[in-house]
């Protein structure tokens, strides 16, 4: 049971670029249905680590599993079983709403019938039924983001990676977006999220903070705040990030 409960298991994961060690022997686990915050200053190695977890690059040493698939040997299977949404708004602006849904349904190998059903339910849930023929580029950013998140979940992945999903979005839209995240997690989908907004870090079940390629600390926000005697996650983050030697 305990083993099944872990969606991501990473052990001594390392990635080197020449002499530079971007990710330095990190180990952690992410549980089923958890909202896991992956924090770190720019250049701390978050993106590199996330790329490995998404099956985009191979670790130099160490390893682990995502959804039970090996990071080194089963990248294709990992890609098939994860969802991904990035900070840069990640849909095609010159395609219509339904065309974007169709495209990603097709990419993940869903049948036309399933795609049609998914399209209807997705548009209904997002209150976007009237907007199906709009070009995505014409939608307000908040709508785009919600649509992108739903499309990242179209193939019902066990885990979804969100790379700074709320960058450049107003506070109200961010709050609505986090409601969607909670909703999704409550259905058993694991959320792996990076963010620069420390108030968002408070929403996570557990948070890891990377500094200089290593995980400086990892725990629930409440415990971290107590440990560092800080009022909020912002103070925790600054205490840890101050120790960074490389810029």
């Amino acid at each position: 049971m305990d083993k099944d409960n872990k969606v991501i298991v990473v052990h001594e994961l390392t990635k080197k670029f020449g002499n530079f060690t971007a990710v330095d022997h990190i180990s952690f686990e992410v549980h089923h249905g958890e909202i896991f915050g992956f924090l770190g200053a720019n250049g701390a190695g978050k993106t590199t680590a996330m790329k490995i977890l998404c099956g985009l690059s191979l670790p130099t040493s160490g390893g682990g599993t995502v959804n039970g698939f090996d990071l080194c040997r089963e990248q294709e299977k990992i890609k098939r079983n994860i969802g991904y949404m990035s900070q840069k708004f990640s849909l095609y602006a010159d395609l219509k709403v339904w065309e974007n849904i169709r495209l990603f349904g097709g990419i993940y190998g869903l049948s036309s019938k399933v795609i049609r059903e998914k399209t209807e339910s997705m548009l209904h849930n997002l209150n976007m039924t009237d907007l199906r023929n709009e070009l995505v580029g014409d939608l307000p950013l908040g709508w785009k983001q919600k649509l992108a998140f739903s499309i990242a979940l179209i193939h019902e992945p066990g885990i979804v990676f969100l790379d700074e999903p709320t960058g450049g979005v107003d506070p109200e839209t961010r709050r609505l977006f986090w409601e969607m995240i909670y909703e999704t997690a409550s259905h058993g989908t694991t959320i792996f999220v990076t963010t620069h907004y420390m108030d968002e870090a408070e929403y996570c079940d557990r948070v890891s903070i990377m500094v200089d390629g290593v995980i400086a600390d990892l725990d629930a926000p409440a415990i971290l705040k107590e440990r560092y005697q800080a009022a909020d996650m912002d103070a925790v983050f600054r205490q840890l990030a101050q120790k960074a030697k490389r810029q």
């Binding site: 890609k79 990035s86 990640s90 990603f104 990419i107």
Partner: peptide
């Protein structure tokens, strides 16, 4: 440029 390439790369295509 638009960042959609990333999206294609994490997909199984």
């Amino acid at each position: 440029e638009y960042g959609t390439m990333e999206l294609l790369l994490v997909s199984p295509v």
